[in-house]
Every structure is written in structure tokens, then in C-alpha cells.
Design a binder for these strands. Sequence first.
RNA 1: GUGACCGUAGCUCAAUUGGUCAGAGCACUGGACUGUGGCUCCAGGGGUUGUGGGUUCGAUUCCCAUCGGUCACCCCA
Length: 424
Amino acid sequence: MIRSVRGVHDILPAEAGKWRRVERAAREVFEAYGYEEIRLPLFERTELFARGIGEATDIVQKEMYTFDDRSGESVTLRPEATAGLLRAYIEHGLHVLPKPVKLYTLGAMFRYERPQAGRYRQFHQLDVEALGDEHAALDAEVIAMLVELFRRLGLADRLSVEVNSLGDEASGCRPRYRTELVAYLRAHAAGLCEECRERAEKNPLRALDCKRPECRPVLDRAPALGAFLCADCTTHFARTREYLAALGVRHVVSPRLVRGLDYYVRTTFELTTAELGAQNAIAGGGRYDGLIKLLGGPPDPGIGFAVGVERVVQLLPDADREGSAEHRARVFVIPLGEAALKGVLPAATALRARGVAVEVGHGDRKLGRELERAGRLGVGHVVIVGEAELERGEAIVKEMKSGTQRAVKLGELVEALLALGGRA
RNA sequence: GUGACCGUAGCUCAAUUGGUCAGAGCACUGGACUGUGGCUCCAGGGGUUGUGGGUUCGAUUCCCAUCGGUCACCCCA
């Protein structure tokens, strides 16, 4: 047997309904906020991710699906959507559109990682980016929209919203803080775990998020980023929070919220849940004002987020029997014998053309068996056509729930069933 | 990349210290019920016990390897 590749999963019909719910809700919410869909390639030149995500990040160093195509060019299955979306924004000159340019996309991403709860090699994200506008009101609107998505999915009260400001590379407040933090971590290396001592050199901000209790005393007294923010960043963050309050978005400031990608500046945010084990982040994003320029585009600011669809789906309750039958056949046609089958096919086709889902039996089974199948498929009505009915040019329409049935002329069958409408 | 636990029918799981132990329930197909269902009863199909080696008279059971699953670390959505 040929099995699927490690870390990838089939989404079977029983689960697909939940995915559709999530995707439908996302489209509705994003479009209500003025975002338009953009569809992007699943792979890009490796260089794009190396530059956009950061050479030093784990994603680029050890988690990318990278290979050479037949021309010898190195390409990579996208590990996230932002880099490719910005590439398209630059390549097609979308920056000439009225700002902010609001785009969303959804689909599969790939990372070569060891599978774990909520983390797979092919995973799916909803990705939203608002480009060319740095107003704090936009930061708040983006976060509010994300919360609205989860409210609509009935999950809002199982999530918490964390926000932080990382300062700015350009204004220098983040570099200043990083220098200070590294000095502090080195000075107190004795009180830190080995990993944190490494982080102090590699990625100092991430040390703040260490889960080991022995590191807490040192880390809790580390210099706080907030105190180092420049005047502009301080104001931007304060105003973002004011707008969030005005939008009614409850949130907590989490000084340790330091995202893993190099390009984030100023506002960062995350939606977390206590229900998914170690992979507790369900969505996250932030501002990346220098990234578009870094990728060769105009000096436009940007802010966006990604939602892990697998993690959202895990939080959704299983659809009940009614819900899962939503898209199944609503009418089950049971011909008895070959002649009846041929006689009823035109009506079935006509119904399908009118948007009614129809399942047609093959005419070679016992009526009782077919009714049993119809019952288990959960259809509302069955149409029975036997030889006797065929001779009279009729069919029997039976309502499954009540068991009542009546004869209908074959020529009037389509209209009769359509008239049953939603109750079918 | 590191570690822990796990791998028997499509699914959920049984199989006493290695000795008819390859089974049950659900699901599927057919029959009881010659054209009226969701119940019941009966029967059937389906497994080289993840794969490959090894120990043994004999391995689902013990050992090694490998592949996969799960969870955690690293990191991250």
C-alpha cells in the first residue's frame, strides 16, 4: 500500500464541513472589512524566503521544503504566505492602488518539521495583509477583524488576545533594547538554562519567552522593552490600544510576546488558547514596516496575520448528524427495474439542474433495502417508481419522516419536489 | 534534529508467564421480509498481527533495525 507522506493529512468528508465553515466565515469577515482575495503560487524562488523571513531564522535554516527544479533553480514550497504576497504586490505594482491595499489568501503551507499536535508538514493558513498604511487605527482594525472571525465561529470566549510592541528597527529603539538585553543576559548567564544562554547570542528576544521555571527570576527582572520604546513607537502602541478599546476588543499586553520572524516591528499580536497543548497559538501577526522595501519594493509599511486552520478546526465541535448531511442528497429516487430507471432519469436530471441534490438507485435492489439506504442518508423524500406507476405515468413521493406518500404525475414531479423546497 | 510512548480487520479494541489466539463490537454485503425504511435474527467478505531480520520446536507476545502514529523539546500558525 502506498501511504501518504509523513506529516501530511487527508481531510475526509466527515471533517471537510468544518473546513468549509472556517473558510466561508473567513471570506465573509475579511470581505466585510474590505479585503480582496489574492491567489498565490505554492512555491517561490528560495531567495524570496531567505530574504523575507530572515536567513537566521529556524524556518529558513532547517524547516524549508527546498529543492532544485530541472533547470537547476532552487525553489521552495512556501512556509508562510506573507513573502509571496508581498512579492506579488511589488511585481504587479499593486502599490499604486488606494492605500491601504487590503489582501487575503488562504491555502497550504509547508515546513519540514517533525509532526506534533497542531503542527504538520503541510498545514493551512488564512493570511491577511494590509499594505501602505501605518496608522494605529489600522493595527486595531486588523486585530478586531481577527477577533470578529473567531466570534463568528463561536470560539471567541475560548481565546485570549495578546498584544505587544517590539519597537522599530529604523528609529533604533529595538536595536538599543536588544543591546541592553544581551548585556543583561550575559551578565546573569549563571541563572539561565543552557538554551537561554544560546538564545542570548542568537535570538535574545526569544529568551524572554522561556518556559523553564529556573530562568524566571532572571528573566522577570530583565529590562522591559516598553521602557525602551521611542516616542513614536510608544505613541503608536498607546493609540493602537485606545482604538482597540473603542472597538471593544478585550486584550492583554504581553511583554514576552516576541514573534519568531525577523521582520516584525511595533505591533505584534497573538490569539492563544489553553486547549491545544503545546501549540497554543492559533493565530498571530504583526507589523512589518521595512519588509516591502527589503524585498525590492516601495518603502510601504504593512501589517498582517496568519491563522492556523488546523488549530481552528480542532476547536470546532463535531458537526451533528443533521449538519453533516447538509450537502447530501435531498431526494432519493428508487426505480424498481430497468424500465423504471430509464423512465425516471430525465426527471432526476431536471431536478439536479434546478439545484436539488438527487441520488438515484440502480433499479436492481429490493425496495426495502433502498428505503433503508435512503433513511441512513438522511434524505427528506424518496421517489418510488415501479412498473405499476410507470404504466400510469406516475411516481410515488414519500416523506421519510412521516412515512406519508402520494402519487404524482411524472411530468409534474420536478415542480412537486421543488415545491417541497427547504423541507426536502 | 533530540527524547518518550505506541503500531492486531475500514473503525474501536481483545488474545492468561511465547503454545489452535487470529477474535469481538461497529461498519459493509446478502438472506429471513416476491413492491415500503431506520428494530431484530442469521450468514458472508475482509488481516502475510506496519515492514525486514533475529532468538525459539513454536512469536501478536521476546530482541534489533526500519517505516509510520502520538506527545514533548527546538521552533512556530
